[in-house]
Nucleic acid binder design. Structure first.
Lengths: 238, 238
DNA sequence: CCCCGAAGTTGACGGCGTCAACATGCAATC
DNA sequence: GATTGCATGTTGACGCCGTCAACTTCGGGG
């Protein structure tokens, strides 16, 4: 595996040398990589996917790319910053998974709205199950994401919209629709996203760390339906 | 702070020397501590309480106690094992918090059962809010607890009952009561603990890492009532 | 009384994040 | 087209971490 790592590094470096790298600019020389930032992020994503946030080791990522450890400091503030980039990627993938599941259900009316809520939860939990390392990294509390928040105030904002907010927004939109269509009583609307979010996030944790980890795809889907169904039922109740 | 650490270490060691330590045996000599295992656990608990599972650093715990780092290996398999001990402690405290809140509500009948479920959720989330470091450590997925589970089979079982199971048991008991008393329909019972557990765990995470972190005690309590109320409502629905 | 094994120590190794000082080479300037 | 400047990488070092091997100390059972 060490050999494997090194091989990957050499391959990456060779790609840079010959200018074959997908998103490399024109780097044919061997000293300058050409697209080191993205290469490091890709390597870090692999590490995170395999071992979660704790596996995102700066030196390991540099090794994978075939570059010295300190080279990373030209593109990141440090390990935390690199981890933050992976976090952003994970949240992006989570949003994509939710969108994939949400797209499958069309139509309008109460039943469609209910189905859309179920689909969102399904997409969320499925991503957590399929990419546990990335999911954990996406919700790693160290590691500032694109929106860095410290004790007081925003530190930096790299993207047009916080990714964390993006998935949350999908949820609020669907809840709004559920109210508009008469599925959820308006007086039950405020705070509803908290319950829904807590439920899916908690369920995901039960799958990753808790007693649900050993379940197969089929049983897992049943549990997901049950859990998401419960929270929807709770929101619908008088 | 380094000086502080050292001072604490010296104090601890002095206590051992003079035999004043609370649970120390008869260790008046300076070479043998007398109760190092528990002293290390206490130190590690402090670290966890202040900085979460990542702060449980073996060398730091040893330093606090005033002992060489490798001394810990006479009492623990390694850092993971020490972390596991803290994890057990955290789960114990969680159970205590749930019991405290649960004890406050007496009586029988549907309303009492509902109140008891609410109380359990309150105790859970309150503990997470009051002791975020310990809570995170209690649910840290690395760190084998008293019941160590690896790929296949149980590794060791130090306690009479898994602590993780203990808090889970409180929940199932309360749900059983809710069914017996007619609050929850029997056909809705199987799997209900999953929804309840997921909801409180997810809510706790929203408080610790998510957008609910900045809330004051009063607003937090409101959110807790809302969230726990939603899951109970979901379980009660036809 | 002795001595043996449990409990702690020192020293070392490799890996980590990070900093300072140095090397390289692309690109804009004259 | 040669010169030079600055972004980009490299080497070496520091202090921290977890862990192992070998040595030292001590207290209780023959």
């Amino acid at each position: 595996m060490q050999a494997n790592s090194e091989a990957t590094g050499e391959a990456e470096r060779e790609a840079a040398r010959t200018g074959v790298a997908g998103s490399g600019t024109r780097g044919k020389g061997r000293y300058h990589h050409g697209d080191l930032r993205n290469a490091l992020i890709r390597a870090a994503i692999e590490l995170a996917a395999e071992g979660g946030p704790d596996a995102v080791v700066l030196r390991a990522a540099a090794r994978k790319v075939g570059v010295s450890a300190t080279a990373a400091y030209r593109h990141f503030d440090g390990q935390t910053d690199l981890l933050g980039a992976v976090k952003d990627y994970g949240q992006q993938r989570l949003v994509a998974s939710m969108e994939d599941c949400g797209r499958e259900v069309g139509g309008q009316g109460p039943e469609a709205a209910r189905e859309r809520m179920m689909a969102l939860g399904r997409g969320y939990i499925r991503f957590a199950r399929r990419e546990p390392g990335l999911y954990r990294t996406a919700f790693c509390h160290k590691a500032l994401g694109s929106l860095g928040i410290t004790a007081e105030g925003v530190v930096e904002d790299r993207g047009p919209l916080t990714l964390e907010a993006r998935s949350f927004e999908m949820l609020t939109d669907t809840l709004d629709e559920a109210v508009a269509v008469g599925l959820i009583a308006p007086e039950r609307r405020p705070g509803a996203e908290l319950s829904a979010w807590a439920m899916v996030h908690g369920a995901a944790m039960l799958f990753l760390d808790g007693p649900l980890g050993a379940l197969g795809e089929e049983q897992a889907d049943y549990v997901i339906e049950r859990v998401v169904g419960d929270v929807v039922a709770g929101l619908m109740s008088p």
